[in-house]
């Protein structure tokens, strides 16, 4: 099986524009189609170490970011495609890369119910999985990126995938999305960070993605048991602290962060209860990344 980095740029561009490039990403195969230059460049930088799926593979998600009509080219717009249909309005072509990544998240958020899904970053150290749920802007991605640059394994920046009735986390490793000041904060944290194309003026401001499969075994598909749940919150004005959170309150908060808790019905309730009864829960208030990474190291001993 070959890696994306073994494809020369010209072959990658060619394949993206014709039948699409099939990539193994966690438990899924994504087919990515595009005729926008930034997409090829971004994928070559951020997905270099991902495996190309063998020909004739089952494809889970057929996605694309393309300029298809003359009107789109004239107006500098591009559209996200899913199943070769466009579910959303067009976006400025300068924001294409961010929208492809969002679209790839959306496939999992909307169409997958074999797992209990939490809106959370997931990292692992010494075989222990840590789930970090958070609303957008809570600082989970920034902390996740910093951990990824400090020898931790990043299982996901967006989705905790938990097999109901277990504490098993299925890795869905993809680049980590950084927004606005987080981009500079992470560059200051580690000048060697590999970033993809910058998308400016999106509804979330400036967005850039970070190559996150730096740890060995980043693409191992085996599940990792969850050990802890940490609710991170970035705050410049409050003292930094790490403290225990009651399980009952954690249950309610984790359910709030779930994409499909209610779709799963009673099984969702049981799955969440099992998870919360098995993992210890913490709140982490931080503004200094070095401090936060050190605290996380303490937690896993």
């Amino acid at each position: 099986m070959s890696l994306l980095r073994e494809l020369p740029m010209s072959a990658l561009t060619e394949r993206l524009a014709s039948g699409g490039v099939d990539l193994l990403i966690g438990p899924y195969v994504y087919r990515i189609r595009s005729n926008v230059a930034a997409i090829g460049q971004g994928l070559a930088r951020l997905y270099a170490d991902f495996t190309l799926a063998p020909n004739g593979s089952f494809v889970d998600f057929d996605v694309g970011l393309r300029q298809d009509t003359i009107a789109q080219k004239l107006r500098g717009q591009a559209q996200f495609l899913f199943d070769q249909q466009s579910p959303f309005d067009t976006v400025p072509v300068q924001q294409a890369y961010a929208f492809l990544e969002w679209g790839m998240n959306w496939c999992v958020s909307l169409h997958v119910n074999e797992y209990l899904k939490l809106h959370a970053a997931v990292v692992a150290r010494k075989g222990a999985g840590i789930i970090m749920p958070g609303i957008p802007g809570a600082g989970k991605s920034t902390l996740c990126a910093a951990l990824g640059l400090s020898g931790w394994r990043v299982l996901s920046d967006e989705h905790a995938l938990i097999t109901p009735g277990t504490i098993d986390l299925t890795p869905l490793s993809r680049p980590v999305s950084l927004k606005n000041e987080s981009i500079q904060a992470i560059q200051a944290f580690d000048s060697g960070v590999i970033l993809g194309p910058e998308s400016r003026n999106t509804h979330k401001g400036t967005v850039a993605h970070m190559k996150a499969d730096m740890a060995p075994h980043s693409h191992d598909i085996n599940t990792v048991p969850a050990a802890l749940m940490v609710f991170p919150r970035y705050s410049r004005d409050e003292p930094q602290e790490l403290y225990h959170r009651y399980r009952s309150a954690s249950f309610v908060l984790a359910a709030y962060h779930s994409f499909n808790y209610s779709v799963l019905g009673e099984d969702g309730f049981d799955a969440m209860q099992h998870l919360v009864s098995q993992v210890e829960c913490f709140d982490l208030v931080y503004h200094d990344l070095d401090w936060a990474v050190a605290k996380m190291e303490e937690l896993v001993g």
């Binding site: 195969v29 089952f58 119910n113 074999e114 779709v263 019905g265």
Partner: peptide, 21 residues
């Protein structure tokens, strides 16, 4: 069906059951 395909059908059925409830 292979599990890779079956999970998509199961996921869709879960959404249907939720809509029915």
């Amino acid at each position: 069906l292979p599990e890779s395909a079956r999970r998509h059908f199961r996921s869709a059925l879960l959404v249907h059951h939720k809509q029915r409830r």
